[in-house]
Amino acid sequence: MPVFDTVLLDTPTLTVLHEPSIQLLRVVWRGQYDAELAKAGCEQILDHICHTRCSLMLNDSSEVYGDWWKASEWVGQVFVAELGKRGIRAAAWINAMDWPSRHSVASTLPHVQGVEVRIFDFDEQEAAHAWLLSKVPPATA
């Protein structure tokens, strides 16, 4: 995994890191979430990525617990669409260990359009990162 150059947001429940050399955002969610908190976290992410020009996102929710499925349609349709408008083309989503959170993630996927999203289990951090690296466009001469 890379060393991220810039911390864009760092709170007890949400961290957003930026690796400009490969245009990657790493978002780390921690703690208990419900629908309202999930939406608020998504809004915080959107507020902090405006000028990054990132095309890839590692969305790590492995440390999340709680039932936020009531926000799943909004996350899939609105949040992911906004990520796409800000340049995100592909997102690796690290799934939670918590079953209610896993259900919430699964409920989100049918609503996602315009951004390639692939789910990885909580113990597949390296595989998720490798998949994102495969999405990095080749350098142009």
Rank of each mutant, 00 (worst) to 15 (best):
W93Q: 07
S101A: 10
A141F: 15
R102Y: 08
H48N: 13
W69C: 13
R102Q: 12
R30E: 01
R118Y: 01
P110N: 03
I94P: 00
L25N: 01
Q125V: 11
G31I: 13
L132W: 01
D34L: 07
L132N: 01
V112P: 01
E43V: 08
A38V: 14
G76Y: 04
C50R: 07
A130E: 12
P20L: 09
V27A: 04
S21T: 08
W68H: 04
A71S: 12
P137V: 08
R53V: 05
R89G: 04
D60I: 00
K135M: 15
P20R: 06
G114C: 10
E43Y: 06
W74F: 12
S134V: 01
A96S: 15
T140H: 11
D47Y: 03
C54Q: 04
P100N: 05
R118H: 05
A106L: 12
R53I: 03
T52L: 00
Y65M: 09
G76S: 06
P137A: 11
E36W: 09
A38I: 09
A81V: 01
V112I: 14
T52M: 00
P20I: 07
L109Y: 06
Q125F: 14
R86C: 06
W74M: 10
A128W: 01
T108E: 10
P100L: 03
K39P: 02
W29C: 06
E116Q: 09
L24W: 05
L25V: 02
I94T: 03
D98H: 02
F122R: 10
W69Q: 11
V105K: 02
Q77Y: 11
L17S: 12
A81G: 12
